[in-house]
């Protein structure tokens, strides 16, 4: 199948990140549960008592609007991908749209596809603007991911999000060269309704989950565009831990200087739908005109979206219009396991 390209060229006209300030060290989890923290992340971000996917999305979205320098009324869609929407039924996106001051003439919806929900929203935004149906569309990936206490997931399940405004290519900080999406029904990870925690199947997580999908989407995209790894200044992958993206990157021929700037997992954990999009925002904070960026997501269940972006002359003028991803990473308060439990509403006694 060929690379996906919209009818009219589109770009990212604004982007914004948000990461809560609290950090739980892996050593705190292993202190309590006696597990092995080897090979996992050093810290993960933890939402405050008053934070959830909606509030994370709002701040990331405000940062994106600040960089885009557009009237929010021009946004014709607000789409939020997350696996931790505060309501099972009732959109997060309308709350975010209201907070942004988007008018009523707007599409709004919540998407769910594990960690890929954010880039799915981005694909939809590209299609909406690229088809000419809308001038601008907002796509957000945000999560306050859950991990069962004591489970391996608890080390990495983190909170954060990033927002992107898709608009006409000529106004973009980065223009889209093409994208490719690859999905299959692979039950590596799920959460049933009414359940507080997800489950890992324990079979498909690496091969044929993460690697099969990520490598397939990227190879198809690069082949379709006639690109090789060396054409990219940066490559950003979904990062459930630091090891998977590193291994995928190497298999695809990327070097450390290409994938490390967008690899944040060791500092903040896995922000699920916000994970690859936060890596992307960290890269946009430092990228220069002419840089080419590869963005690759992965979501359990399973699928991967890959995008190729080319940075324009506009980006440097927009970078300082909102707090950088790095500023949020460095704004941190280390917490202990008890505080973590309190912040995550886990203190229940019978």
């Amino acid at each position: 199948m060929s690379v996906m390209r919209p009818l009219r060229s589109v770009g990212l006209v604004g982007y914004g990140a948000y990461i809560p300030r609290y950090r739980l060290p892996a050593s705190e989890i292993s202190r309590i549960w006696g597990g092995d923290e080897e090979g996992t992340v050093a810290f993960k971000s933890v939402p405050g008592l008053d934070e959830d996917t909606v509030t994370i999305a709002i701040e990331a979205a405000r940062n994106a609007v600040a960089r885009a320098r557009i009237d929010p009324v021009l946004l014709r869609a607000v789409w939020i991908g997350s696996e931790s929407h505060p309501y099972a039924v009732k959109p997060s996106s309308t709350v975010v749209a209201e907070a942004l001051g988007v008018g009523n003439a707007c599409l709004a919806a919540d998407l769910q596809f594990a960690c890929k929900a954010g880039t799915e929203a981005l694909q939809a935004g590209i299609a909406l603007v690229g088809s000419g149906m809308a001038g601008y569309a907002m796509a957000i990936g945000a999560d306050t991911a859950q991990g069962r206490p004591g489970d391996a997931l608890e080390y990495t399940a983190a909170a954060g999000g990033a927002a992107y405004i898709v608009g006409p290519a000529e106004a973009g900080c980065a223009t889209l060269e093409g994208s490719y999406s690859y999905v299959s029904d692979t039950p590596d990870f799920w959460r049933r309704p009414g359940q507080n925690y997800p489950r890992h199947g324990g079979r498909f997580t690496g091969e044929p989950g993460y690697f099969a999908h990520v490598l397939s989407s990227v190879r198809s995209l690069m082949e379709g565009l006639g690109r090789s790894a060396s054409d990219y200044r940066y490559a950003v992958f979904h990062q459930p831990n630091p090891r998977f993206p590193e291994r995928a990157a190497r298999q695809l021929g990327f070097k450390s200087e290409q994938y490390s700037p967008g690899l944040l997992a060791n500092e903040i954990g896995n922000a699920y739908a916000g994970s690859s999009l936060l890596g992307m925002s960290a890269v946009l904070d430092i990228a220069q005109p002419g840089d080419r960026i590869l963005l690759v997501s992965f979501g359990s269940g399973a699928g991967s979206d890959a995008f190729s972006w080319l940075v324009t002359d506009t980006l440097p003028k927009r970078q300082s219009l909102a707090p950088t991803t790095r500023a949020y990473i460095e704004r941190k308060t280390i917490i202990d396991y008890a505080t973590y439990l309190r912040l995550r509403g886990q203190l229940v006694m019978h």
Partner: peptide
Amino acid sequence: MVTRHINEEGDDGIINYHFK
């Protein structure tokens, strides 16, 4: 100003967001 979850109307009620 930031927008945050300020409280909720019980486990099955609406979630209130407010400026902080």
